[in-house]
């Protein structure tokens, strides 16, 4: 049986079990978190779009942090080529549902977390209803149509979005607070024309980049939940693994943005044409 402890932190009495006080003690010790902040984390609901490279580390760290509810949306099964970077899935999970595999790992790590499985693709039909059930969204999608949909749906649902992207040796993170900070379309109005920009499947990606960018996304999500620090808004944080260098690019709300600008042309959700991308079609040759 768990014993109940009364923890006094930041002037508030919190009911945590002794086990939970120990589990989250390194958070509770932080003056910016304390028992009050840990309670905020425990009450938070975060939706992760994609249980892949970015979603894997983000989900594991958010689970370890004690996020109350983690929703995961993904329609894929685990492929052998995923395991180079999608660390939430193991070799024994091959051909299993990614969402199911992720849920098992999260609950093995922290049974305090409720995992909501959405074995589906995010589309203009389901996005709004889904996102409205969460406090914020973490974009770990691998294609532009879903990334733009995340941006648009979070705008219409008025939910913060932590965007992430990786390719080859580079990664990017930015946080978007709808109506207050630059959105993804303020910078990139539309997805690139099909075939012009390579995907990870075509161009490759250093696996560990997913960990670096995904954990920065998790950091941003926790900061938003706690209301601590300065969010990564109106800034793109670009990371180049070849030089081990971060660069910050300042952005701001664009009056010509088709979504949140002065004369918006996007007034409801829609799906961009998905890029044609099938990992099984990409044959990789190994040089001798």
């Amino acid at each position: 049986m768990r014993g109940w402890g009364r923890l006094t932190a930041n002037g508030m009495n919190m009911d945590f079990t002794d086990e939970q006080i120990t589990r989250y003690s390194r958070h509770i010790l932080l003056p910016e978190v304390g028992g009050k902040g840990q309670k905020k984390i425990a009450k938070s609901r975060i939706l992760i779009v994609g249980a892949g490279g970015l979603g894997s580390p983000a989900a594991l760290y958010l689970a370890a942090a004690g996020v109350g509810t983690i929703g995961i949306i993904d329609s894929d099964v685990v492929d052998l080529s995923n395991l180079q970077r999608q660390v939430i899935h193991h070799t024994s999970d091959l051909d299993r549902s990614k969402v199911r595999s992720a849920k098992e790992k999260i609950q093995a790590l922290n049974p305090d977390v409720t995992v909501v499985m959405h074995e589906d693709r995010l589309t203009s039909r389901n996005a709004l209803e889904l996102i409205r059930g969460y406090d914020l969204v973490l974009d770990g999608a691998d294609n532009f149509s879903t990334k733009f949909l995340c941006n648009d749906a979070c705008y219409f649902a008025d939910k913060p979005l932590v965007h992430g992207g990786i390719l080859r040796f580079e990664g990017r993170v930015t946080t978007i607070i709808p109506r207050k900070s630059a959105c993804y379309r303020c910078v990139f109005k539309n997805p690139p024309p099909p075939g012009l920009v390579a995907s990870c499947q075509e161009a490759g990606v250093l696996g560990v980049l997913a960990g670096i960018i995904g954990t920065i996304q998790a950091t941003e999500a926790l900061k938003l939940v706690l209301g601590v620090g300065r969010p990564l808004t109106d800034r793109l944080l670009d990371f180049d693994a070849r030089r081990t260098a971060f660069r910050e690019i300042k952005t701001k709300k664009n009056p010509n943005c088709p979504l949140c600008g002065d004369h918006p042309t996007i007034t409801e959700l829609f799906d961009h044409e998905p890029e044609v991308c099938d990992v099984k079609q990409v044959k990789v040759k190994v040089e001798a």
């Binding site: 490279g53 970015l54 294609n143 990139f188």
Partner: peptide
């Protein structure tokens, strides 16, 4: 941010700061 239609008509001057932001769409 510059409109794509304006790239050909926007002059660059000494000391300007230009950012070419490439799409980065991967996540999986």
């Amino acid at each position: 941010m510059l409109e794509r239609d304006h790239l050909a008509t926007t002059p660059v001057k000494e000391g300007d700061q230009v950012e070419f932001l490439f799409y980065m769409g991967g996540g999986r």
